[in-house]
Design a protein around this nucleic acid. Structure first.
Lengths: 239, 239
DNA sequence: CGCCTAGTTGAAGTGTGTCAATGTCTGTGG
DNA sequence: CCACAGACATTGACACACTTCAACTAGGCG
């Protein structure tokens, strides 16, 4: 008798990725799972944007779980160049480290609420709760797929195509995309977008200008984009 | 009393990545772990190079574990373009899927021996053995780091730098690098290298020619490279 | 209202893809 | 063992997308 087993993960669908779940860890965690995580977590309230959560090279002591808000992780090269590894949202995990040090820096894009999960207690919990751990494994597999997809995007696609794909990613998220007005509210700067898409702010601006010229979008200031021709945008992202 | 606990993973070092382990799953698995995996695995002997293991889009039924040999995973775009996601070696896992279908194709670069781990029994095993699962989670975290590093390489570095870094990766592996002769035996074609580095065979050839012109390497046929100036190569990979 | 940061647009330079031709391996069959 | 064929690798010429540098404009916050 195991009692009720809410949302038992199935590796064939979980490791394989489930469409409706979208890689959100919080969507698959049961109330019991969350309670256990909260038991070892400390809550981190970051009331403003552009707050550093941890820096690259800093001793890694915790994994972070986003409850609310948006976070960007970035690695800084020896020279000035910076690569944003990902824009993360509620349900995402971050805090990947190598040899005890964070490989990237993390900072808020918006006010955010995080669970800070210290590594030692987290490991203990995962070892005692294999079902919970499988959710973490599934999430890691999902993030690996995303990273591999981004490898392809950065290596093979033009800047225009990268930007089109980037915009389309936001359409799924209600907090950023207002479906009624067809408007995307971008929470990051042109420089951030450029550092994520491995290009320059100038090229991003030019790509936006070209999209507006074609009638696919309309800009209301740099942070607000109205989608006028979604099919064209989808086409641009896949050609 | 838990009895002997060989090589208990410590998340703070394992999820964080351990230098000497190098992400090799087989290096951290105990004899008991291996026995259990073998219990659900079928062994796959692939006697020659260029053998397809599974194709992109095929129904995903198993995860694969490389015991011997080398494997390449690649995704094929609608048009002719191909991206090799990774060159994999003993101890590596592959078979990542999305919605029940493999997202990449996998084929041998050399004769290989694989464990084929059917997903359902594997999930069952991981749920009953949290310690073993943690090794898988650690491996996934390692692969995620590698993918993120490759994102940076493909997005930010020149073809010359990419190739230098690529060559340096082989120096650690005894089966490919003959330290005495300082020779690297490349098991893949120029096209494969180009598809991994997100460039063209022509650009790879030009980068090799430039390195030879500089006196850093010497080519003995396309598959055998002698390293003449390692510091210069290291410098080229990090500038 | 004015300063300062961020964004946009323009012009010029360059790395790399593309196309084409030549050269070189490899493996097969005579 | 050699000769041949087909694939693979290399080199060259050219085109172009993108970066870089610079000037200008627009937003946002004091």
């Amino acid at each position: 008798m195991n009692g009720p087993q809410p949302r038992i993960p199935v590796l064939t669908t979980r490791l394989s990725g489930d469409a409706d779940e979208g890689g959100r860890l919080d969507a698959v965690l049961s109330a019991e799972d969350l309670r256990r995580l909260e038991g070892i977590a400390s809550v981190l309230e970051l009331p403003a944007r552009n707050r550093l959560i941890y820096d690259q090279g800093q001793a890694a002591e915790a994994l972070y779980f986003i409850q609310r808000g948006m976070v960007a992780t970035s690695v800084h090269d020896g020279d000035g160049s910076r690569q944003i590894l990902g824009f993360l949202r509620s349900g995402d995990l971050f805090g990947l480290a190598e040899q005890g040090r964070y490989i990237s820096a993390a900072r808020t894009l918006t006010p955010a609420r995080l669970f800070c999960l210290p590594l030692a207690p987290l490991q203990k919990l995962l070892l005692t709760d294999a079902r919970l751990q499988l959710h973490f494994l599934t999430k890691a597999a999902h993030d690996l797929r995303m990273a591999q997809r981004q490898m392809i995007v950065l290596g093979r696609h033009s800047v225009h195509r990268r930007l089109a794909a980037f915009l389309l990613e936001f359409l799924r998220h209600d907090d950023i995309y207002d479906a009624a007005e067809q408007r995307i509210r971008l929470p990051m700067s042109r420089t951030d977008m450029a550092d994520y898409l491995a290009t320059t702010p100038e090229s991003v601006a030019r790509a936006f200008a070209a999209m507006e010229r074609e009638g696919w979008i309309r800009r209301y200031g740099p942070k607000s984009i109205q989608v006028l021709d979604l099919p064209a945008l989808i086409h641009a992202a896949s050609v």
